[in-house]
Computed example of a mutant assay.
Amino acid sequence: MDVESKLKDLPRWRRAGEAIKRTVSAPDFPTAIRIVDEIAVKAEELGHHPDIDIRWRDLHLTLTTHDQGGLTDLDFTLAAVIDEIAAKHGAQGE
């Protein structure tokens, strides 16, 4: 898989070993929780779940496919969905 090529379509994500990461900064804490809730619904639909660390209004997200030992297309699909959700809520971040 050409990870660097896939990341060109996801400029806010960066590679970290066998994972991709992004920080989303919501306008406030309640919005951050709404973003997490929407991500959770989509993650369930896809059967793929991100690691999420919530720090006030900042969400630190990590995607990898543990049972495949690294990155798969599903990680990049969910990353694009997360970007859409974050943008809808006016979130910023890396």
Rank of each mutant, 00 (worst) to 15 (best):
Q92H: 11
V41C: 10
E18Q: 15
L63R: 01
D2C: 09
P11D: 04
S25Y: 15
L78P: 00
E38H: 12
M1P: 11
T31S: 13
G17F: 03
D83S: 06
S5H: 12
K42D: 05
R12P: 08
K8A: 14
W13S: 00
H60L: 12
A80S: 14
D37L: 11
E18N: 15
V3L: 08
A43M: 00
F76G: 02
V24D: 07
R57V: 03
R22H: 10
P50A: 03
A43T: 02
L10V: 04
P27C: 02
A19S: 15
E44T: 10
L63V: 01
S5P: 11
T72N: 08
R55P: 01
R55G: 04
L7V: 00
D75P: 00
V41Y: 12
T62A: 09
D73G: 14
T62W: 02
G90R: 02
H66A: 07
S5K: 14
R34E: 15
D58R: 12
H49K: 06
L59G: 09
R15H: 12
E4S: 13
D28Y: 09
T77Y: 07
S5G: 15
R34M: 12
E44R: 11
G93W: 11
V3Y: 08
H66W: 11
A43H: 02
K21S: 07
R14T: 11
I39Q: 11
V3C: 03
I85T: 04
A79D: 07
T62I: 02
A43G: 07
G93I: 04
K42N: 06
D28N: 15
S25L: 15
E94K: 15
W56K: 13
G47W: 02
F76V: 02
A19W: 05
R22P: 06
A91M: 07
K8M: 13
Q92Y: 12
A26G: 03
D58V: 02
L7N: 05
D53P: 00
